[in-house]
Design a binder for these strands. Structure first.
Lengths: 151, 151
DNA sequence: TACGATAGACAATGTCGTTGTCCATATAGT
DNA sequence: ACTATATGGACAACGACATTGTCTATCGTA
């Protein structure tokens, strides 16, 4: 078979392995309704995209779509919207305690998963993997415009 | 920042880098309307999922959804449906010349991209990357149930 | 003060997935 | 051979989630 096919598929599968493991763990830690996309959105909020409009820009979707996503996350208890006293048009999106917990747990699980890979591969090989990937990908790690990209 | 976050994001970004480059190239080679998902479907067809129902099983979606996807691909000229003489319920999905060409071009571009990575990284590092990914992912490379997984 | 840009809500629409139903046809059990 | 069950595909209704367009309120600035 052609060799070139394998690399992208393996990259995607490795990503899936990690994300599936993450959400399996998160479900057992009190976040069974977290979806892969929610993590991206919470990350974006935590990193300063604190309104529907700026969230839309960060995620690469329309502000309407971002607004609905926020609504969903609000119903799940991960964020709230509070009026901005400095700008009465805006409603600032704020992580709830549950939202902060979800992010903290995600970070913990990712660290554990990384440790598992280190144990499996050896720390050197894992570092090599990350170095190699760093060399072949843009520096800006948080391009979160993933939703909808695959289509 | 937590290190664990980086690995999955880099894996996804590396995948995106390759897929974006692929489709940029495909667009210039006569396949501007190919979408990332189409490649997966054509692959599945080429690998024996030659009916709407079996395609649905391979892709992890309902047979109705698979049927609609086939319809789209048919409109784009990548596949046709011919009645199965051995089973008059079935309509066999067949790659058209254009579909075969899309797959062949994809393979070529992937090979070129891999060669580019080899030139950038050195062949040894690229082999290491693939070896490492192989160790951390399931053997069954063609789990094509990607559509809808992210949600 | 007036004007252009921005935030967010609302509505209509499109795409793509789902489930449910239906019919024709294969296949297996008696 | 006959009947029961399973399968393939079409059609319809629906839901999730994105889009664009429009509207109002508000902000920042010339």
């Amino acid at each position: 078979m052609s060799n070139g096919f394998e690399l992208p598929l393996r990259l995607l599968m490795a990503f899936r392995v990690l994300i599936d493991a993450l959400h399996e763990e998160l479900a057992e830690r009190g976040h069974p309704d977290m979806r892969p996309m929610h993590g991206f959105v919470l990350q974006a909020v935590a990193r300063g995209a604190d309104s529907a409009a700026s969230l839309g820009r960060t995620l690469g979707v329309s502000k309407q779509a971002a607004g609905k996503t926020v609504e969903t996350l609000e119903e799940l208890g991960y964020v709230t919207r509070v009026p901005d006293p400095a700008d009465s048009r805006r409603k600032t999106v704020v992580l709830t305690g549950r939202g902060v917990d979800a992010l903290r747990q995600s970070a913990e699980v990712f660290d554990e998963l990384r440790a598992r890979w280190a144990a499996e591969l050896g720390a050197g090989r894992l570092d090599d993997l990350e170095d190699t990937l760093r060399r072949m990908t843009p520096d800006d790690l948080f391009r979160l415009d993933v939703p909808g990209w695959f289509g």
